[in-house]
Design a protein around this nucleic acid. Structure first.
Lengths: 363, 363
DNA sequence: CTCAGATTTTAAACCGGTTTGAATGGCGCT
DNA sequence: AGCGCCATTCAAACCGGTTTAAAATCTGAG
């Protein structure tokens, strides 16, 4: 932690040889300028913009006019310093790059968060890290730098230490996805189980009896939730246990797991994948073995990525409204940072989208 | 602009009935605490952490020990206020949601930006907007709120007004992608033309003579660049002009454009798509017409999304190192905000990835 | 016409850093 | 001993807001 901002040494050895001058930022008007123009004190201006009582209509009017004339808006940074709130939330993403670029989740989630945040005048500060240690550092920094008032916790793992960390830091936090019952941090997540149940019922109704599952990366709460939902749904439908192959949410993993399942002595006639990426890779894998989808193998994905509709055959899958989820999460987290108690908001129900990749089993 | 933060009215009508108390943030040590513990002035502490000369080794040592003992790190917000720099960059994304969730570009780009930013202690502030007006507002806010020192300009359009805007705001900016020669804002972009040229040469070498193109959304600079590169490459290879169909980067658009091209009296034997999403949809479209890829139609994409390798047939495509691009862009933009002149950094060359979706033409 | 009480207004302190200009202290030299 | 110089050190001002406590002004009742 020696020195935080090592300047180029030249800047100190020589006084000012040809030191680059920062671009001349048009110096914005300050609250003082507005106050002077409106002939009131800074405090009055502050009261007006914050909607506090105790300002005469005349004064308020003058302030508003002065602010408009100068095009003034309060500096977020200065306000943050005074109020000790950053008016911003933090999102730390730790994912291997190959997952990051295909997973439809984050872009949509971020879009949803933004739509919830912008009316509240909150900003979103993003960090992408690679290691678990960097991730924890990121939360600490976000907190003590005063850059964020609250953080989202995504991709929760079974033995995740982050809830304890944010709790210790006194940092508001919200888990995205299925939470852990004992966690000190509230969770907001879509109901994976419902979608999976619908998928299994659909396959069962088509006549399938051996329904396999290709799971997501082990250790992740949402992967676990989907796996468990699949088992439960099979049981509820009165079907026997199905073959399970754990994978990692990647195309390569999905292909490999598919081959494993199809190599079984009694291979499944339908496979439910923990995400669309693996499902699409699974279709290609099955096709490469000479199987036809859906005639010889039915495939169900999870996510409904935009491509799902445009592959051959179009993918039957489970869709969540991730944007609405992100919006709700943002609103909840802002509310939490303001000290309000957590209230689980209603999320739109998951949809089960039937396309072409599912059909009655061959025999 | 009346009032920025309308508090719930209850907070004022009733004095303090059961007003939610903000969660008790563990109050972090300040520079004053460190100064006191080290028995020096705040100025000395500031000098130490900023690596400025004129501090005795003894004093420096004491400061460092005190800082370590207290676990102190300077508050980014306070520093931003003093130095009038936010130590943060802004990225405003305006894209229709259906593109956002499939495009592999943004997640990777953001990851790259982060990797360039985190060693410099800069943060990334993200905004996702839907309308062009909201987009311009976002830049203004980022600038005058003091939330960002510089911004990235993505998805530049041919008649884009943002360069003029950032110029007027005195806000450092950097265009991501092919720039416009007359722009006041520098651009950093991968060399689309090289990849396209390689693709066309590859198809030509296989024996194709009618090579079509499915373009991206009209009005976008990068779509235009790819289209132009395709035309130029055909010309350079001594091939006749190929059929062109403009689309919009979406799966639906790619499928539709593909049908259009295949409906031509003299359909192309190979199609180059402006992105992988359209290419994959194009493969499905061709397949649904009874054509075999690559025997009856060769397909080349652009992006190399992770799925490209795992569809049937695996997609031949053009790959850019978007992460490296993002990193270089971040470093350049930080450098620009510090008043250094723009220097175009070297980006890794694009790669042309040959898989299975290209083959010699049928006849 | 007075004066208490309510309303409006403001000066000043504060948030946590940076930066300046002056004060302090140690040293070699005459 | 006295002097000048340079290296350290620090008090204070500042960044642009918010908030408190007190001053100023306005009410209306007596």
């Amino acid at each position: 932690m020696a020195q935080q901002h090592p300047e180029p040494s030249a800047a100190r050895t020589a006084p000012e040889p040809a030191a680059p001058t920062p671009p001349r930022r048009r110096s914005r008007p300050t609250i003082g300028d507005v106050a002077a123009l409106a002939q009131v004190s800074k405090a009055t201006v502050s009261f007006v913009v914050n909607g506090r009582a105790g300002v005469s209509p005349r004064a308020r009017q003058r302030v508003l006019e002065a602010a408009a004339a100068l095009g003034w808006q309060p500096s977020a940074g200065a306000r943050a310093l005074s109020t000790r709130r950053a008016q911003a939330l933090g999102l730390v993403i730790r994912r291997p790059p190959e997952l990051l670029s295909t997973d439809p989740f984050f872009p949509q989630f971020v879009a949803g968060v933004e739509s919830g945040l912008s009316p509240l005048d909150y900003a979103l500060v993003l960090q992408v890290v690679e290691t678990e240690e960097a991730e924890r550092n990121a939360y600490e920094r976000l907190s003590h730098d005063g850059r964020a008032d609250g953080v989202f916790l995504t991709d929760l793992q079974l033995d995740d230490r982050r809830p304890a960390l944010t709790d210790r830091l006194g940092l508001a936090a919200l888990i995205i996805g299925p939470g852990r019952p004992d966690s000190p941090v509230p969770a907001i997540g879509a109901d994976d189980a419902e979608g999976v149940r619908r998928a299994v019922e659909h396959l069962h109704a088509l006549g399938h009896r051996r329904i396999g599952h290709v799971g997501g990366a082990e250790g992740y709460v949402h992967a676990e939730a989907r796996r468990r939902a699949w088992m439960t749904a099979l049981d509820d439908a009165g079907l026997p246990e199905g073959p399970l192959e754990a994978a990692d949410f990647t195309g390569a993993g999905g292909a490999r797991a598919t081959h494993q399942l199809l190599d079984l002595p009694d291979p499944p006639t339908a496979i439910l994948y923990a995400n669309d990426l693996m499902a699409i890779a699974g279709i290609a894998a099955a096709t490469s073995r000479g199987l036809r989808v859906p005639q010889d193998l039915s495939v169900v994905g999870f996510d409904d990525i935009p491509l799902a509709e445009y592959i051959a055959p179009p993918l039957t899958t489970i869709r969540q409204d991730v944007i609405a989820w992100g919006r709700a999460a943002a609103q909840q987290l802002v509310s939490l940072t303001q000290g309000h108690p957590f209230e689980a908001p209603a999320l739109p129900p998951v949809e089960f989208v039937v396309r072409v990749s599912t059909a009655p089993p061959a025999s």
